[in-house]
Amino acid sequence: MPVARTRKTKNNKKSNKRRTPGAPGASGPQAARPVAKRRKLAAALLAAVLVSVLMVGVLSAIGSPGGDEESDAQEQGEIQPLPEGHPALDLARRDADDPLAAGPADAPVVMIEYVDFQDAFAGIHARGTHGELVEEYVETGVLRIEVRNFPINGPESDAAARAAWAAGQQDRFWEFHDAAFAEEFHRDSGRFDEDGVLALAEAADVPDLERFEADMASEEAGEAVGRDAQEAYDLGVTSTPSFLINGQALHGARSVDEFRDVIDQLYEAAE
């Protein structure tokens, strides 16, 4: 980005006033320090502004409610990959040991999914499109899916998020995910109360249920869920499921063809 340069005005008049060290307008090391500090502060503020500007596109896209908004990547026609170094690309954690992720850590396309286990549209996606994406793209090494817990529908949503994280500590996150979304259900139905999450853990073949309960109640679980939720809030996410595919936003229970269109274009651009 071009940076405007200010011109120094010429002043041919010489001042006969003597300056004392440290006084306003003094020269030398003591005067240089506050000037250097001001320059560093200005540079830091400029960097913060640039990051904010870069994020505007992501915020405006993923922050709109509903699953049929025309601001989504799919409505933009030809997808333009985000430039290298864009903050949205840094959201992908690419941790090979992340139990809430599927697919190779170095996959060319990363899809971040913000999910509430009590959300009906998240369930529709999980029972349909998700499986097709796994078969076509995750298993072939093209796509990596990273789930972020975003419990926005009350206490049972929070309990479900903690339970999903706890199942992941025993490498059963995706089994818990599938069991939790296996059928339609009403919100706050007791599906994710104390007995409900244990039943889902059993259905997911979580081997140590006592450890599962302890992990679910742990401070670490709260911190992990809180970290994911804060990321979503910072982005301006207002509904689930919401997705960032290499930084490109999609909302709701979209058809598999809509995901294919975005993933295919981003994969081709990455080759």
Rank of each mutant, 00 (worst) to 15 (best):
R5M: 11
R7T: 13
K10Y: 05
S15M: 06
K17Y: 00
K17L: 07
R19L: 13
S27I: 10
P29A: 09
A32R: 15
V35K: 15
A36I: 07
L41Y: 06
A42N: 13
A48E: 15
A48D: 15
A48C: 01
V51A: 09
G63P: 07
G66D: 06
D68A: 12
D72I: 14
H86V: 11
L89P: 05
R94L: 07
R94A: 14
R94P: 03
A105S: 15
P108H: 00
V115F: 02
F117E: 02
Q118T: 12
I124K: 06
R127N: 04
G128W: 07
G128D: 15
G131M: 03
V138S: 00
V138T: 07
E146T: 05
E146A: 05
R148W: 08
F150M: 09
N153E: 13
N153Q: 15
W165L: 03
F173A: 07
W174N: 01
F181H: 07
A182C: 05
E183C: 10
G190T: 10
F192W: 12
A199W: 08
L200A: 14
L200W: 05
A201Q: 06
A203R: 15
D208H: 11
L209W: 14
E210G: 07
F212I: 08
M216C: 03
E220V: 08
G226Q: 10
G226W: 08
D234R: 14
T240W: 00
I245T: 01
N246L: 01
N246G: 09
Q248Y: 06
L250C: 01
G252Y: 02
A253E: 02
F259D: 00
E271P: 01
